[in-house]
Simulated scan of single mutants.
Amino acid sequence: MVAQIPTETTTPVIYPDCDGNPMSDNTKQFRWIVTIKENLELLSAEDPQVFIAGDLLWYPVEGDNKIRQAPDVMVVFGRPKGDRGSYRQWVEDNIPPQVVFEILSPGNRMAEMSRKLHFYDRYGVSEYYIYDPDRIDLAGWVRHEDRLESISQGEGSANEDTHNWISPRLGIRFSMQEDTLVIYRPDDRPFLSFVEIDQLRQQAQQETQQARQETQQARQETQQARQEILQVEQQAEKLAAKLRELGIDPNDL
């Protein structure tokens, strides 16, 4: 009788789509996350190979579901747009997010932010930005050779150095104003909130409608003028005909 050798089985690794943490702690943080994410979506709308996500779990290592991070906003060049439950790097041509944004809330701790910086540094992020909307403070790191280096040369706050700083990958410009951060598109138009975008859309629609009405009015006035000219020409022709009946040549007058 031949003994059966037990088959070795492995439990498949499950990569949860949710880590149980909220996307934001307050309305201000949420507003900044949405504004940055959606404006970047608008910028890359014509490029099918730019994937942008907010609060999406990123798993950089296959087989380990404990190594993960959910950036407030992440940008991946070279990956197609589309819905995902999580960003599993090994099924994405092993391309890590190149640009990451974190928006601070009062609940964030220095140890947590230090851990995130270490994570993004280790797993290949090219640009990392942290904005504190309460302190109006922006910090940034850019990869040089094989590590992320602070734009402020390790000062801890990049406020001065990031004033009018331009992202190498995105082309957007960060401008530290007195009471807020303003982010400008490459065409120098500022990032706008949904409300501001909708207001501009409505204004554009009103201006377009007004232009159409003015064009229609001009066409009507042109048509009316043509009709008036035609009437004058017809009256002149009738008068000339009467003069000819009287033996008078209108050209001699």
Rank of each mutant, 00 (worst) to 15 (best):
2 V>D: 07
3 A>W: 08
15 Y>A: 04
15 Y>L: 03
16 P>C: 05
17 D>S: 15
19 D>S: 13
20 G>A: 10
26 N>Y: 07
26 N>M: 04
27 T>V: 03
33 I>S: 06
34 V>Q: 13
36 I>H: 11
36 I>G: 04
37 K>Q: 14
37 K>S: 15
39 N>S: 10
43 L>K: 15
45 A>S: 15
48 P>K: 09
48 P>V: 06
49 Q>H: 12
51 F>Q: 08
51 F>K: 12
53 A>F: 08
55 D>T: 07
58 W>Q: 01
58 W>L: 12
63 G>I: 09
64 D>A: 05
68 R>S: 08
68 R>V: 13
71 P>M: 05
74 M>H: 12
77 F>T: 01
78 G>V: 01
89 Q>N: 04
91 V>K: 07
95 I>C: 01
96 P>K: 02
100 V>F: 05
101 F>S: 03
108 N>C: 05
109 R>K: 15
109 R>S: 09
116 K>R: 09
117 L>E: 04
119 F>D: 03
121 D>S: 11
125 V>S: 13
126 S>F: 04
127 E>L: 10
131 Y>E: 03
136 I>S: 02
137 D>Y: 06
138 L>F: 07
139 A>Y: 09
142 V>K: 15
145 E>K: 15
146 D>M: 04
146 D>G: 13
149 E>D: 09
152 S>Q: 00
153 Q>H: 10
159 N>H: 09
162 T>L: 10
167 S>P: 05
171 G>V: 06
172 I>S: 05
173 R>P: 02
176 M>R: 15
177 Q>P: 00
179 D>V: 07
179 D>A: 12
186 P>G: 11
188 D>S: 14
188 D>W: 10
192 L>W: 03
193 S>A: 07
193 S>R: 09
194 F>E: 14
196 E>L: 06
196 E>C: 03
197 I>M: 15
198 D>R: 15
198 D>F: 10
200 L>V: 07
205 Q>D: 12
206 Q>D: 10
208 T>R: 14
210 Q>V: 02
211 A>Q: 13
211 A>I: 01
214 E>L: 11
214 E>H: 05
215 T>R: 13
215 T>F: 03
215 T>S: 10
216 Q>G: 11
220 Q>R: 12
220 Q>M: 05
223 Q>K: 12
231 Q>I: 01
231 Q>M: 03
233 E>L: 14
242 K>Y: 07
243 L>M: 12
245 E>K: 08
246 L>I: 02
249 D>M: 03
250 P>W: 08
251 N>K: 14
252 D>G: 01
252 D>C: 04
